[in-house]
Protein backbone atom coordinates (compact mmCIF):
# COMPACT_ATOMS: atom_id res chain seq x y z
CA UNK A 1 0.00 0.00 0.00
CA UNK A 2 1.40 3.38 -0.95
CA UNK A 3 0.95 6.60 0.89
CA UNK A 4 -1.74 8.03 -1.40
CA UNK A 5 -3.95 4.98 -1.09
CA UNK A 6 -3.44 4.83 2.61
CA UNK A 7 -4.59 8.42 3.03
CA UNK A 8 -7.57 7.89 0.80
CA UNK A 9 -8.62 4.76 2.64
CA UNK A 10 -8.24 6.23 6.06
CA UNK A 11 -10.25 9.27 5.04
CA UNK A 12 -13.00 7.05 3.70
CA UNK A 13 -13.05 4.99 6.88
CA UNK A 14 -13.20 8.08 9.02
CA UNK A 15 -16.10 9.42 6.96
CA UNK A 16 -17.97 6.11 7.20
CA UNK A 17 -17.44 5.91 10.93
CA UNK A 18 -18.77 9.41 11.49
CA UNK A 19 -21.81 8.73 9.32
CA UNK A 20 -22.59 5.52 11.17
CA UNK A 21 -21.99 7.10 14.54
CA UNK A 22 -24.31 9.91 13.52
CA UNK A 23 -26.97 7.43 12.49
CA UNK A 24 -26.62 5.52 15.73
CA UNK A 25 -26.67 8.53 17.98
CA UNK A 26 -29.52 10.38 16.30
CA UNK A 27 -32.47 8.07 17.00
CA UNK A 28 -31.13 7.49 20.49
CA UNK A 29 -31.24 11.17 21.23
CA UNK A 30 -34.77 11.54 19.92
CA UNK A 31 -36.15 8.53 21.77
CA UNK A 32 -33.83 8.76 24.74
CA UNK A 33 -36.39 7.48 27.18
CA UNK A 34 -38.18 4.89 25.05
CA UNK A 35 -36.97 1.49 26.36
CA UNK A 36 -36.58 -0.39 23.07
CA UNK A 37 -35.02 -3.48 24.68
CA UNK A 38 -37.95 -3.88 27.07
CA UNK A 39 -40.45 -3.63 24.24
CA UNK A 40 -38.57 -6.23 22.16
CA UNK A 41 -38.38 -9.00 24.78
CA UNK A 42 -40.66 -11.96 24.07
CA UNK A 43 -40.83 -13.55 27.53
CA UNK A 44 -42.99 -12.12 30.33
CA UNK A 45 -40.57 -12.66 33.21
CA UNK A 46 -37.60 -11.34 31.23
CA UNK A 47 -39.70 -8.36 30.24
CA UNK A 48 -40.59 -7.51 33.85
CA UNK A 49 -36.95 -7.95 34.77
CA UNK A 50 -35.76 -5.59 32.05
CA UNK A 51 -38.21 -2.89 33.14
CA UNK A 52 -37.61 -2.99 36.88
CA UNK A 53 -34.25 -4.79 37.15
CA UNK A 54 -35.76 -7.63 39.23
CA UNK A 55 -38.71 -10.04 39.31
CA UNK A 56 -39.83 -9.31 42.81
CA UNK A 57 -43.54 -8.51 42.40
CA UNK A 58 -46.44 -8.70 44.86
CA UNK A 59 -50.09 -9.26 44.04
CA UNK A 60 -52.33 -6.68 45.63
CA UNK A 61 -56.00 -5.77 45.76
CA UNK A 62 -55.13 -2.06 45.79
CA UNK A 63 -54.94 -2.06 42.01
CA UNK A 64 -58.16 -2.16 40.07
CA UNK A 65 -57.62 -3.58 36.63
CA UNK A 66 -60.68 -3.17 34.46
CA UNK A 67 -60.72 -5.30 31.33
CA UNK A 68 -63.44 -7.30 29.57
CA UNK A 69 -63.88 -11.01 30.43
CA UNK A 70 -64.39 -11.81 26.78
CA UNK A 71 -63.18 -9.50 24.03
CA UNK A 72 -64.74 -10.24 20.68
CA UNK A 73 -62.18 -8.26 18.78
CA UNK A 74 -58.57 -8.65 19.90
CA UNK A 75 -57.56 -5.52 18.02
CA UNK A 76 -59.39 -3.31 20.52
CA UNK A 77 -59.29 -4.42 24.15
CA UNK A 78 -60.07 -1.58 26.55
CA UNK A 79 -57.88 -1.59 29.66
CA UNK A 80 -58.32 0.66 32.68
CA UNK A 81 -56.01 0.71 35.65
CA UNK A 82 -56.74 2.52 38.89
CA UNK A 83 -54.73 2.29 42.05
CA UNK A 84 -55.11 3.43 45.64
CA UNK A 85 -51.40 3.03 46.41
CA UNK A 86 -49.37 6.05 47.44
CA UNK A 87 -46.49 7.63 45.52
CA UNK A 88 -47.10 5.78 42.29
CA UNK A 89 -44.16 6.27 39.95
CA UNK A 90 -45.21 4.21 36.97
CA UNK A 91 -47.88 1.89 35.63
CA UNK A 92 -47.01 -0.81 33.11
CA UNK A 93 -49.32 -3.16 31.24
CA UNK A 94 -48.10 -6.63 30.26
CA UNK A 95 -49.94 -9.18 28.14
CA UNK A 96 -48.48 -12.64 28.70
CA UNK A 97 -49.27 -14.32 25.38
CA UNK A 98 -48.54 -11.40 23.07
CA UNK A 99 -45.43 -11.56 20.85
CA UNK A 100 -43.93 -8.85 23.07
CA UNK A 101 -45.54 -8.86 26.54
CA UNK A 102 -44.86 -5.21 27.37
CA UNK A 103 -47.73 -3.23 25.85
CA UNK A 104 -47.49 0.20 27.36
CA UNK A 105 -45.92 2.09 30.19
CA UNK A 106 -46.99 5.27 31.94
CA UNK A 107 -44.48 7.32 33.86
CA UNK A 108 -46.29 9.48 36.34
CA UNK A 109 -45.21 12.63 38.10
CA UNK A 110 -46.15 13.92 41.53
CA UNK A 111 -49.04 15.82 39.98
CA UNK A 112 -50.65 12.90 38.19
CA UNK A 113 -53.24 10.55 39.63
CA UNK A 114 -52.75 6.78 39.31
CA UNK A 115 -55.58 6.38 36.83
CA UNK A 116 -54.88 5.38 33.25
CA UNK A 117 -56.77 3.84 30.41
CA UNK A 118 -56.11 2.79 26.86
CA UNK A 119 -56.99 0.22 24.24
CA UNK A 120 -54.57 -2.55 23.35
CA UNK A 121 -54.24 -5.38 20.84
CA UNK A 122 -54.17 -9.01 21.95
CA UNK A 123 -53.20 -11.92 19.74
CA UNK A 124 -54.96 -14.63 21.76
CA UNK A 125 -56.52 -15.38 25.12
CA UNK A 126 -54.08 -14.29 27.77
CA UNK A 127 -53.53 -12.93 31.21
CA UNK A 128 -53.29 -9.16 31.32
CA UNK A 129 -51.15 -7.82 34.11
CA UNK A 130 -50.94 -4.29 35.40
CA UNK A 131 -47.81 -3.50 37.37
CA UNK A 132 -47.63 -0.44 39.56
CA UNK A 133 -44.43 0.90 41.04
CA UNK A 134 -45.10 2.52 44.38
CA UNK A 135 -42.50 3.57 46.95
CA UNK A 136 -39.92 1.58 45.02
CA UNK A 137 -41.88 -1.68 45.22
CA UNK A 138 -43.74 -3.42 42.42
CA UNK A 139 -47.36 -4.43 42.87
CA UNK A 140 -49.42 -6.28 40.31
CA UNK A 141 -52.98 -7.21 39.47
CA UNK A 142 -53.92 -9.71 36.78
CA UNK A 143 -56.96 -10.70 34.84
CA UNK A 144 -57.63 -13.21 32.11
CA UNK A 145 -59.15 -11.89 28.92
CA UNK A 146 -60.62 -14.33 26.41
CA UNK A 147 -60.20 -13.41 22.78
CA UNK A 148 -62.46 -14.66 20.01
CA UNK A 149 -60.66 -12.98 17.08
CA UNK A 150 -56.95 -12.19 17.38
CA UNK A 151 -55.69 -8.68 16.83
CA UNK A 152 -52.07 -9.32 15.84
CA UNK A 153 -50.81 -10.53 12.50
CA UNK A 154 -53.33 -11.62 9.86
Amino acid sequence: MNRRNFLKNSLMTAATITTFAGLLIKPKRVFAAWPKESFDITDLNESIKSVYGHNNVNETSKIKLKAPDIAENGAIVPINVKSSLNNVESIMVFVENNPQPLSCGYNLTTKSQPIIGTRIKMGKTSTVMAAVKSDGKIYTASKEVKITIGGCGG
Binding site: V77, C104, G105, Y106, S112, I120
Partner: peptide
Protein backbone atom coordinates in the same frame (compact mmCIF):
# COMPACT_ATOMS: atom_id res chain seq x y z
CA UNK B 1 -47.63 15.57 34.12
CA UNK B 2 -47.29 12.24 32.30
CA UNK B 3 -44.97 10.43 29.91
CA UNK B 4 -46.48 7.50 28.09
CA UNK B 5 -44.42 4.82 26.37
CA UNK B 6 -46.34 2.75 23.91
CA UNK B 7 -45.33 -0.41 22.13
CA UNK B 8 -46.81 -1.74 18.90
CA UNK B 9 -49.47 -3.59 20.93
CA UNK B 10 -51.55 -0.46 21.40
CA UNK B 11 -54.64 -0.35 19.17
Amino acid sequence: VITVHWGPAVS
